[in-house]
Write a protein that binds this DNA or RNA. Structure first.
Length: 780
DNA sequence: TTCAACCACTT
DNA sequence: ACCCTTGGTTGAA
C-alpha cells in the first residue's frame, strides 16, 4: 500500500517542449547533444519556457596526405555516406606552428561516424587525421563560439530549427546570471538492486515513498516529474544504485519511466570501468545521463563534490563541456577541453592521437631530470613561532611565465634557450598552447579571490566555489603535462617545470637565509621558517623580497604558535617530509600526513587523534604545550577505555581501503584482501578501484574468513579485535607525542601499568583506578 | 629478522 | 588505461 504525502507545491503541467512557431528570443543554452546531422539544443527562454530546438551541424575534420594516398580515402569516405570531403584549406601544425595544406571533411552522421573512423588508420596508414575525435557537444561549442548556460540571442523558424544563436555573455565574465533551475532530489535505498524506499524532494518539500507496489511507485514518480518538470535530477548514488534499480523496476512492471524530456530510443546498460588516474585505480560506475535534463549524482561527481554546483557551472562554461557530462568527468577533462577549444579557435590541427616519442635520455640525464620537486627534510620535533610561506599555484604559474608547453620544449628554432640545470630548451618565438590556456585561468582565479575579500557572506561562497573549480584545473594541468597519454602532454615539459620549481625554491631558501631566517622545512612550493622576535610585517617584507627575486608570487600562509614535525616510525632519528601538525593563533589546527589525514584510518582512531590535537591546540607555546600533554593523554585513555569495554560501534571501527585489482588477484592474506574476497563470496561485486569496508574481528584467527567482517554483513553487536584497535589508537597517540619521549611502550605502560617496574612519573590516583579495570578486560 | 606486497599521502 | 617519490603495515619466509 503506497502513500505519498500530499505534494504541496503548485503543479506545472508542461504540454510540449516544441516551439509553437518562428520566434526570436533571449534565453540560456541549457544542453546540447547530437542527433545525426544536427545538434539538439535545449534552451530556457527568458520567460521560463523549456524548448527543444535543432541546429544543423556537420563538424569538420581534416586529413593530410599525398594525393595518391588521399584519392582512395576520399572514395572510401564518399561510399560510407557518413561524411563529405569539402575542399582544401590551410591549418597550423601543432608541433611546428607551420601552415599546412589539409583536406576538410564534414561529418554527416555524428552517431555512426566514430565506428567508421576507427577502421581508417589501418587501411590508410600514411594519412594523418586531425580534429576527428572531438566530443560532438564540445566540438559544437568550439565551432559556434558557444558554451553551456551562455545567455544568447536566438532565432528559430517554424520547425524549431535555429537560424542564429549569438552569445551575449562570455565565459570569462566574473559576474553572470544563470536561469533559475528547477532541481528535484531523488534518494533511494534498497538491497542489491531492489529498491525499498524512495524519497523525492523539491523546493523544500519532501515526499517519502515506502512499501508501495512497483506500479504505483513508477506511476507516481512519473506524475511528479511531469507536474514539476525539473531541469536537474540530483541524486546520491543515482548512477551506482538508484537509476539502475528504478529502470529494472520499470522494466519488470512494464511501465516506462519518464525521467527524460526527450524521447530516448534505448538506454544501453553498460558495464562500469576501472581506470588509472593520479597514481591510483578508480572505479567508475556506468552513468545514466538524461536527455533534456541533467542527472547529477553527487556521490559520483568529483567536481560537484569538490566545488559544488557553482564550481560545476563555472567549469562547464569555461571548458565548454555540457554540464551533465562534466559532472561525471575529472577536472583534467576540463583543462584538456580548454586546450582543444583554443586550438580550434587558432586553426591549430588537433592530432588524433598523441604520437611524440620521448627523446632518448642517458642514465645521468634521467637521474637529474626526474628529481621532481625539491625537498629539505624538516628539523624534527617541536618548534615555536614558525612561519609557513607558500608559492601561489607555483607549477601553473611557471608554465605560464616560462612558456612551458609540449610544443615549445626542445623546439627546432631556439637551441640555446636552456631550462636551468637540465638539458631541455624552450621556444622563445612562439607561445605554447598550454601557457596560453593557463594564463587567463590564473588571472580569473586571482580576480575571484580579490572579489571574495570585498563580498558578503553568500556571494563569497559562490565565488569560493568558482575559484576552487579553477584551482583544481590549475593543479591537474601540471599532472597532465607529464602524463603520457594526455593529448597535450610531454614528459620533457613536465621536467622543465620541476627544474624551474627547484630553482625558485632554492632561491627562496637563499633569500630567507640572507635575512637571518632558519629553514625548518621546505618542499616543492612551501617553506617553514623562523627567526627570533619576528613580526608579521617582517614576514610580509620577506614574501615581497622572495616574490621579487624569483618572479613567482609567494604568500604568508600563517605563523604557527607551534608546529611539530614527526619522525619516521621506522627510525625515530629520521625526519619525514610532510608529516606534521601545528596550531595557528586561535587554535586552528593544520596537519598533514598523520593518521587523521588518512582515508583508511578507523573513525575511532581519527577521532581520538583529533581530540588529542584539539586539546594540544589550546596551548600557545612550549610551556603550555607540555602542560597540556597530560590532558591529551587523558583523552587517549578515555578512548582506550571505551574501546576495551567493548562499546565501540562497527561504524567507528570500519577500515575502508581501495582495491587496485580484482579480489582474486591478491596473493597475500592481509585483512583488505580477505575482505575483498568476503564481498565476492556473499554476492557483492567489487571492482578494481572500488573500496571495501571492514571491521577487524580477530586478526590472528586461523580461519581467514573470520579475521574480518565486511560492512554489508555487519550487525549491531560485532565483537572486534580490541588489541589490534588499541594498538592503532596508541600509535596515533605516539605519532603526536613521541617527540616528547612518549613512545608506544611508554604509552602502553602508562595506560596499563605492568606489575613490576612502575612507569615514569606515573598517573594520578584516578588513572590507576581506570588502568586496573582496563587490564582486567585486556588480559582476562 | 627480513622481505615482498600493498595502500595512502604530499605537492 | 601509470611507472615508481616516500612511509607504513602486514603476513609469511
Amino acid at each position: 500500500m503506497g502513500e505519498w504525502k500530499p505534494w504541496k507545491r503548485k503543479s506545472i503541467i508542461t504540454m510540449s517542449y516544441r516551439p509553437k512557431g518562428a520566434e526570436r528570443v533571449k534565453g540560456w543554452l541549457f544542453d546540447v547533444y547530437p542527433a545525426k546531422g544536427a545538434m539538439v539544443v535545449w534552451v530556457i527562454s527568458e520567460d521560463g519556457r523549456r524548448l527543444r530546438l535543432l541546429d544543423p551541424f556537420n563538424p569538420p575534420f581534416y586529413v593530410q596526405a599525398r594525393p595518391q594516398e588521399l584519392r582512395p580515402l576520399i572514395r572510401d569516405i564518399n561510399k560510407s555516406g557518413l561524411a563529405t570531403p569539402q575542399g582544401w584549406t590551410k591549418k597550423k601544425d601543432f608541433w611546428t606552428g607551420e601552415l599546412v595544406e589539409v583536406l576538410q571533411v564534414a561529418i554527416e552522421d555524428m552517431e555512426r561516424f566514430p565506428a567508421y573512423l576507427k577502421g581508417l588508420p589501418r587501411r590508410y596508414p600514411k594519412v594523418h587525421f586531425y580534429n576527428c575525435d572531438l566530443h560532438p557537444g564540445q566540438h559544437y561549442f568550439y565551432e559556434r563560439g558557444l558554451f553551456p548556460l551562455a545567455c544568447c540571442d536566438m532565432e528559430w523558424d517554424e520547425r524549431g530549427v535555429l537560424k542564429s544563436i549569438t552569445p551575449l555573455d562570455s565565459p570569462w565574465d566574473l559576474e553572470y546570471k544563470i536561469p533559475p533551475l528547477r532541481i528535484m532530489e531523488l534518494t533511494g535505498s534498497g538491497r542489491g538492486f531492489r529498491l525499498l524506499s524512495l524519497q523525492v524532494r523539491m523546493d523544500g518539500y519532501g515526499l517519502s515513498f515506502e512499501q508501495a507496489s512497483p506500479q504505483e511507485a513508477i506511476h507516481d514518480l512519473n506524475r511528479l516529474i511531469r507536474e514539476n518538470d525539473p531541469d536537474v535530477v540530483l541524486t546520491s548514488g543515482g548512477d551506482s544504485f538508484l537509476f539502475p534499480a528504478l529502470l529494472s523496476l520499470a522494466r519488470n512492471c512494464e511501465i516506462p519511466i519518464e525521467l527524460d524530456r526527450d524521447r530516448v530510443e534505448h538506454r544501453i546498460a553498460r558495464e562500469g570501468r576501472s581506470l588509472f588516474s593520479y597514481g591510483r585505480v578508480l572505479y567508475m560506475t556506468p552513468d545514466y545521463p538524461l536527455f533534456g535534463r541533467w542527472h547529477i549524482d553527487r556521490e559520483n561527481s568529483f567536481i560537484y563534490a569538490e566545488c559544488g554546483f557553482e564550481g560545476l557551472i563555472e567549469l562547464a562554461r569555461l571548458s565548454k563541456i555540457p554540464v551533465q557530462r562534466l559532472a561525471r568527468r575529472s577536472t583534467g577533462t576540463a583543462i584538456t577541453s580548454m586546450q582543444l577549444d583554443k586550438a580550434v579557435q587558432e586553426g591549430i590541427l588537433v592530432p588524433w592521437k598523441k604520437a611524440v616519442p620521448e627523446k632518448w635520455k642517458s642514465g645521468l640525464e634521467l637521474l637529474i631530470a626526474d628529481k621532481g620537486g625539491l625537498v629539505y627534510q624538516p628539523i624534527l620535533g617541536f618548534h615555536e613561532k614558525v612561519a609557513e610561506l607558500d608559492f601561489a599555484s607555483m607549477y601553473p604559474a611557471i608554465m605560464a611565465k616560462f612558456n612551458v608547453s609540449p610544443e615549445t620544449v626542445n623546439c627546432e628554432c631556439c637551441p640555446d634557450a636552456f631550462v636551468p640545470e637540465i638539458g631541455h630548451t624552450i621556444c622563445r618565438r612562439r607561445e605554447g598552447l598550454v601557457p596560453k590556456v593557463l594564463r587567463p585561468i590564473l588571472e580569473k582565479r586571482k580576480r575571484y579571490k580579490e572579489l571574495m575579500r570585498q563580498s558578503k557572506e553568500d556571494t563569497r561562497e559562490i565565488l569560493n566555489q568558482r575559484q576552487t573549480a579553477l584551482k583544481w584545473c590549475l593543479v591537474v594541468s601540471f599532472g597532465f603535462l607529464g602524463y603520457r597519454n594526455a593529448r597535450f602532454g610531454r614528459i620533457e615539459a613536465h621536467e622543465a617545470v620541476t627544474a624551474y620549481s627547484r630553482e625558485k625554491l632554492l632561491l627562496a631558501k637563499e633569500v630567507c637565509e640572507e635575512k637571518g631566517y632558519r629553514i625548518i622545512h621546505a618542499i616543492v612550493d612551501a617553506l617553514w621558517v623562523k627567526k627570533e622576535g619576528v613580526r608579521e610585517a617582517d614576514l610580509l617584507e620577506l614574501c615581497r623580497e622572495i616574490s621579487r627575486r624569483t618572479g613567482q608570487s609567494i604568500g604568508l600562509e600563517g605563523v604557527y604558535d607551534w608546529i611539530v614535525f614527526v619522525p619516521s616510525r621506522l627510525n625515530a632519528e629520521v625526519p619525514v617530509a610532510n608529516r606534521y601538525f601545528g596550531s595557528f593563533p586561535g587554535g586552528r589546527l593544520k596537519f598533514r600526513g598523520i593518521e587523521a589525514r588518512r582515508g583508511d584510518t578507523p573513525h575511532i582512531v581519527r577521532d581520538a587523534q583529533l581530540a588529542m590535537m584539539h586539546e594540544l591546540s589550546k596551548a600557545r607555546d612550549a610551556r603550555e604545550f607540555e602542560e597540556r600533554v597530560p590532558k591529551a593523554l587523558d583523552v587517549l585513555s578515555s578512548y582506550a577505555i571505551y574501546l576495551l569495554e567493548g562499546r565501540a560501534r562497527p561504524e567507528e571501527l570500519l577500515i575502508t581501503r581501495t582495491l587496485s585489482k580484482a579480489p582474486e588477484e591478491y596473493e597475500r592474506n592481509d585483512p583488505m584482501a580477505i575482505a575483498a574476497r568476503q564481498y565476492i563470496k556473499h554476492g557483492f561485486r567489487v571492482h578494481p578501484g572500488e573500496s571495501v569496508s571492514y571491521v577487524l574481528l580477530d586478526t590472528k584467527d586461523p580461519s581467514l574468513d573470520d579475521r574480518v567482517r565486511v560492512l554489508p554483513l555487519l550487525d549491531g553487536n560485532t565483537a572486534y579485535d580490541q588489541e589490534k584497535y588499541l594498538e592503532y589508537l596508541l600509535k596515533a597517540g605516539e605519532t603526536l607525542l613521541s617527540q616528547l619521549g612518549y613512545s608506544l611502550p611508554y604509552l602502553k605502560n602508562s595506560l596499563f601499568p605492568s606489575p613490576s617496574p612502575s612507569p615514569p612519573n606515573g598517573g594520578e590516583d584516578q588513572d590507576k583506578g581506570q588502568s586496573l579495570s582496563l587490564r582486567k578486560i585486556l588480559f582476562v
